[in-house]
Protein backbone atom coordinates (compact mmCIF):
# COMPACT_ATOMS: atom_id res chain seq x y z
CA UNK A 1 0.00 0.00 0.00
CA UNK A 2 1.70 3.15 -1.15
CA UNK A 3 -0.62 5.75 0.33
CA UNK A 4 -1.21 6.76 3.91
CA UNK A 5 -4.70 5.86 5.04
CA UNK A 6 -6.90 8.02 7.25
CA UNK A 7 -10.42 8.23 8.71
CA UNK A 8 -12.75 11.20 8.66
CA UNK A 9 -15.54 11.36 11.24
CA UNK A 10 -18.32 13.80 10.41
CA UNK A 11 -20.01 14.48 13.73
CA UNK A 12 -23.02 16.12 12.00
CA UNK A 13 -23.84 12.80 10.35
CA UNK A 14 -23.44 10.43 13.28
CA UNK A 15 -26.79 9.02 14.48
CA UNK A 16 -25.33 7.25 17.52
CA UNK A 17 -26.24 3.71 16.41
CA UNK A 18 -22.94 2.31 17.72
CA UNK A 19 -22.47 0.04 14.75
CA UNK A 20 -18.81 1.04 14.72
CA UNK A 21 -18.40 -0.07 18.36
CA UNK A 22 -20.09 -3.37 17.62
CA UNK A 23 -18.07 -4.02 14.47
CA UNK A 24 -14.84 -3.25 16.32
CA UNK A 25 -15.71 -5.60 19.18
CA UNK A 26 -16.75 -8.31 16.76
CA UNK A 27 -13.57 -8.19 14.73
CA UNK A 28 -11.43 -8.37 17.88
CA UNK A 29 -13.57 -11.03 19.50
CA UNK A 30 -14.45 -8.87 22.52
CA UNK A 31 -17.63 -9.25 24.59
CA UNK A 32 -20.37 -7.37 22.76
CA UNK A 33 -21.75 -5.28 25.69
CA UNK A 34 -21.57 -1.57 24.95
CA UNK A 35 -19.07 0.42 27.02
CA UNK A 36 -19.09 4.16 27.78
CA UNK A 37 -15.33 4.68 27.85
CA UNK A 38 -12.35 3.33 25.94
CA UNK A 39 -11.14 0.12 27.56
CA UNK A 40 -9.02 -2.93 26.77
CA UNK A 41 -12.18 -4.38 25.20
CA UNK A 42 -13.42 -1.19 23.52
CA UNK A 43 -11.03 0.46 21.07
CA UNK A 44 -13.71 2.87 19.96
CA UNK A 45 -16.74 4.22 21.80
CA UNK A 46 -19.50 6.65 20.90
CA UNK A 47 -19.90 9.28 23.59
CA UNK A 48 -23.02 11.40 23.95
CA UNK A 49 -22.22 15.09 24.26
CA UNK A 50 -25.45 17.10 24.43
CA UNK A 51 -27.34 16.07 21.31
CA UNK A 52 -24.20 15.06 19.42
CA UNK A 53 -22.44 11.74 19.24
CA UNK A 54 -18.66 11.79 19.35
CA UNK A 55 -16.63 8.75 18.44
CA UNK A 56 -13.44 8.27 20.42
CA UNK A 57 -10.53 6.25 19.16
CA UNK A 58 -6.75 6.39 18.68
CA UNK A 59 -5.91 9.45 16.58
CA UNK A 60 -3.00 7.74 14.81
CA UNK A 61 -0.77 10.82 14.98
CA UNK A 62 1.63 11.48 12.15
CA UNK A 63 4.47 11.77 14.67
CA UNK A 64 3.08 9.93 17.71
CA UNK A 65 4.09 10.74 21.28
CA UNK A 66 3.57 7.10 22.26
CA UNK A 67 5.96 5.81 19.61
CA UNK A 68 8.66 8.27 20.64
CA UNK A 69 8.10 7.42 24.31
CA UNK A 70 8.19 3.63 23.97
CA UNK A 71 11.68 2.65 25.07
CA UNK A 72 11.67 -0.69 23.24
CA UNK A 73 9.96 0.57 20.08
CA UNK A 74 6.85 -1.57 20.51
CA UNK A 75 4.68 1.27 19.22
CA UNK A 76 5.38 2.35 15.66
CA UNK A 77 3.90 4.70 13.09
CA UNK A 78 3.61 2.66 9.92
CA UNK A 79 3.92 4.15 6.44
CA UNK A 80 0.36 3.03 5.73
CA UNK A 81 -1.00 5.25 8.50
CA UNK A 82 -1.80 3.09 11.54
CA UNK A 83 0.17 3.36 14.78
CA UNK A 84 0.72 -0.29 15.61
CA UNK A 85 1.68 -2.10 18.82
CA UNK A 86 4.03 -5.06 19.00
CA UNK A 87 3.00 -6.93 22.15
CA UNK A 88 6.07 -9.16 21.97
CA UNK A 89 8.36 -6.20 22.65
CA UNK A 90 6.31 -4.44 25.35
CA UNK A 91 7.77 -4.52 28.87
CA UNK A 92 4.75 -2.87 30.48
CA UNK A 93 6.31 0.43 31.55
CA UNK A 94 3.15 2.36 30.55
CA UNK A 95 5.10 5.45 29.49
CA UNK A 96 2.87 5.49 26.38
CA UNK A 97 -0.16 6.06 28.61
CA UNK A 98 1.65 8.95 30.27
CA UNK A 99 2.78 10.40 26.95
CA UNK A 100 -0.40 10.19 24.84
CA UNK A 101 -1.85 13.71 24.56
CA UNK A 102 -5.29 12.25 23.86
CA UNK A 103 -5.11 9.69 26.73
CA UNK A 104 -6.07 6.85 24.41
CA UNK A 105 -4.00 3.74 25.29
CA UNK A 106 -5.57 1.43 27.84
CA UNK A 107 -3.77 -1.04 30.08
CA UNK A 108 -4.97 -4.51 31.07
CA UNK A 109 -4.75 -3.77 34.80
CA UNK A 110 -6.69 -6.89 35.74
CA UNK A 111 -4.37 -9.33 33.93
CA UNK A 112 -1.27 -11.00 35.33
CA UNK A 113 0.53 -10.52 32.02
CA UNK A 114 -0.90 -7.17 31.02
CA UNK A 115 -0.48 -5.47 27.67
CA UNK A 116 -1.28 -2.07 26.26
CA UNK A 117 -4.38 -1.96 24.09
CA UNK A 118 -5.58 0.50 21.51
CA UNK A 119 -7.04 0.80 18.03
CA UNK A 120 -4.64 -0.10 15.21
CA UNK A 121 -6.81 1.34 12.42
CA UNK A 122 -7.39 -2.26 11.32
CA UNK A 123 -3.87 -2.35 9.92
CA UNK A 124 -4.31 -5.99 8.93
CA UNK A 125 -7.54 -5.37 7.03
CA UNK A 126 -6.18 -2.26 5.35
CA UNK A 127 -3.13 -4.17 4.15
CA UNK A 128 -5.59 -6.45 2.31
CA UNK A 129 -7.30 -3.43 0.79
CA UNK A 130 -10.32 -3.55 3.10
CA UNK A 131 -11.53 -0.48 5.02
CA UNK A 132 -11.40 -0.42 8.84
CA UNK A 133 -14.23 -2.47 10.35
CA UNK A 134 -15.80 0.54 12.06
CA UNK A 135 -15.95 2.51 8.80
CA UNK A 136 -17.38 -0.42 6.90
CA UNK A 137 -20.09 -0.82 9.53
CA UNK A 138 -21.22 2.82 9.54
CA UNK A 139 -24.71 2.88 7.93
CA UNK A 140 -24.69 6.64 7.27
CA UNK A 141 -21.08 7.19 6.21
CA UNK A 142 -20.43 9.38 9.25
CA UNK A 143 -17.00 7.73 9.22
CA UNK A 144 -15.24 7.39 5.92
CA UNK A 145 -11.77 6.05 5.18
CA UNK A 146 -9.35 6.63 2.36
CA UNK A 147 -6.09 8.13 1.29
CA UNK A 148 -5.04 10.75 3.86
CA UNK A 149 -4.66 13.60 1.39
CA UNK A 150 -7.98 12.87 -0.28
CA UNK A 151 -9.71 12.52 3.08
CA UNK A 152 -8.34 15.90 4.16
CA UNK A 153 -9.52 17.47 0.89
CA UNK A 154 -12.96 15.99 1.39
CA UNK A 155 -13.10 17.41 4.93
CA UNK A 156 -12.04 20.80 3.67
CA UNK A 157 -14.66 20.71 0.91
CA UNK A 158 -17.37 19.94 3.45
CA UNK A 159 -16.50 22.68 5.94
CA UNK A 160 -16.07 25.28 3.17
CA UNK A 161 -19.26 24.42 1.32
CA UNK A 162 -21.53 24.30 4.35
CA UNK A 163 -21.69 27.19 6.77
CA UNK A 164 -22.95 25.04 9.66
CA UNK A 165 -19.50 23.51 10.15
CA UNK A 166 -16.91 24.85 12.59
CA UNK A 167 -14.08 26.09 10.35
CA UNK A 168 -11.55 23.66 11.70
CA UNK A 169 -10.65 20.07 11.00
CA UNK A 170 -9.70 18.53 14.34
CA UNK A 171 -6.56 16.53 13.62
CA UNK A 172 -5.30 18.65 10.73
CA UNK A 173 -2.77 20.53 12.86
CA UNK A 174 -3.26 18.99 16.33
CA UNK A 175 0.09 17.55 17.50
CA UNK A 176 1.41 18.16 14.01
CA UNK A 177 -1.40 16.26 12.31
CA UNK A 178 -3.15 12.94 12.85
CA UNK A 179 -4.66 10.22 10.67
CA UNK A 180 -8.12 10.50 12.20
CA UNK A 181 -10.02 13.73 11.51
CA UNK A 182 -13.17 15.17 12.99
CA UNK A 183 -15.44 17.87 11.58
CA UNK A 184 -18.35 19.25 13.55
CA UNK A 185 -21.04 21.92 13.75
CA UNK A 186 -20.49 22.33 17.49
CA UNK A 187 -17.22 23.85 18.81
CA UNK A 188 -14.79 21.01 19.52
CA UNK A 189 -14.07 22.06 23.11
CA UNK A 190 -17.78 21.56 23.89
CA UNK A 191 -17.56 17.99 22.61
CA UNK A 192 -14.77 16.96 24.96
CA UNK A 193 -11.92 17.37 22.48
CA UNK A 194 -8.74 18.37 24.30
CA UNK A 195 -6.72 21.41 23.28
CA UNK A 196 -3.37 19.81 22.50
CA UNK A 197 -0.13 21.48 21.39
CA UNK A 198 0.13 22.17 17.66
CA UNK A 199 3.65 20.87 17.26
CA UNK A 200 4.48 17.15 17.14
CA UNK A 201 4.94 15.96 20.74
CA UNK A 202 8.26 14.14 20.15
CA UNK A 203 9.91 17.51 19.45
CA UNK A 204 9.48 18.29 23.16
CA UNK A 205 11.78 15.46 24.18
CA UNK A 206 13.99 15.46 21.08
CA UNK A 207 15.48 18.80 22.12
CA UNK A 208 16.43 17.46 25.54
CA UNK A 209 17.76 14.20 24.11
CA UNK A 210 19.76 16.15 21.55
CA UNK A 211 21.66 17.72 24.43
CA UNK A 212 22.92 14.28 25.49
CA UNK A 213 25.99 14.10 23.21
CA UNK A 214 26.86 17.71 24.04
CA UNK A 215 26.69 16.95 27.76
CA UNK A 216 29.00 13.97 27.26
CA UNK A 217 31.52 15.83 25.09
CA UNK A 218 31.62 19.16 26.92
CA UNK A 219 31.15 17.58 30.35
CA UNK A 220 33.75 14.94 29.62
CA UNK A 221 36.27 17.52 28.45
CA UNK A 222 35.55 19.78 31.41
CA UNK A 223 35.85 16.99 33.96
CA UNK A 224 39.04 15.66 32.37
CA UNK A 225 40.49 19.18 32.50
CA UNK A 226 39.54 19.59 36.14
CA UNK A 227 41.03 16.19 36.93
CA UNK A 228 44.25 17.18 35.15
CA UNK A 229 44.49 20.34 37.24
CA UNK A 230 43.86 18.35 40.43
CA UNK A 231 46.53 15.82 39.50
CA UNK A 232 48.99 18.53 38.56
CA UNK A 233 48.40 20.31 41.85
CA UNK A 234 49.01 17.10 43.76
CA UNK A 235 52.25 16.47 41.82
CA UNK A 236 53.45 20.02 42.46
CA UNK A 237 52.63 19.68 46.14
CA UNK A 238 54.59 16.44 46.35
CA UNK A 239 57.54 17.94 44.49
CA UNK A 240 57.54 21.02 46.70
CA UNK A 241 57.41 18.91 49.83
CA UNK A 242 60.36 16.85 48.54
CA UNK A 243 62.36 19.97 47.73
CA UNK A 244 61.65 21.35 51.16
CA UNK A 245 62.76 18.13 52.78
CA UNK A 246 65.98 18.26 50.74
CA UNK A 247 66.49 21.82 51.92
CA UNK A 248 66.72 23.23 48.42
CA UNK A 249 63.85 25.73 48.53
Amino acid sequence: MATTRAILVDITKCIGCRSCEQACKQIHGFPMDSETKLSPTAFTVVEERGDRFVRRMCMHCQDPACASACLVGALKKTAAGPVTYDAAKCIGCRYCLVACPFSVPRYQWSKLVPYVTKCDLCAGRQAKGQPPACVEACPVQASIAGDRDEILEEAQRRILNDSKYVKHIYGSDEVGGTSVFFISDVPFEKLGFVAVPKQPMPILTANALGDGPTVILVGGALLSGLYWITERRAQVAVAEARDKANGRS
Binding site: S68, A69, L71, V72, Y95, Y107
Partner: peptide
Amino acid sequence: YELGIPWRIWHPIVMWNRHSVLFE
Protein backbone atom coordinates in the same frame (compact mmCIF):
# COMPACT_ATOMS: atom_id res chain seq x y z
CA TYR B 1 7.22 -4.33 40.71
CA GLU B 2 6.61 -1.42 38.41
CA LEU B 3 6.95 -3.14 35.05
CA GLY B 4 3.88 -4.98 33.84
CA ILE B 5 6.04 -7.74 32.39
CA PRO B 6 9.10 -7.67 34.65
CA TRP B 7 10.85 -10.66 33.09
CA ARG B 8 11.29 -8.54 29.98
CA ILE B 9 13.34 -5.98 31.90
CA TRP B 10 16.30 -6.80 29.63
CA HIS B 11 14.44 -5.79 26.46
CA PRO B 12 15.91 -2.25 26.30
CA ILE B 13 19.38 -3.77 26.00
CA VAL B 14 18.56 -5.26 22.61
CA MET B 15 15.49 -3.31 21.51
CA TRP B 16 16.48 0.29 20.98
CA ASN B 17 14.47 3.43 20.54
CA ARG B 18 16.79 6.37 20.77
CA HIS B 19 13.90 8.84 20.54
CA SER B 20 12.70 7.69 23.95
CA VAL B 21 13.80 9.53 27.08
CA LEU B 22 12.97 6.40 29.04
CA PHE B 23 15.37 4.43 26.85
CA GLU B 24 18.20 6.82 27.75
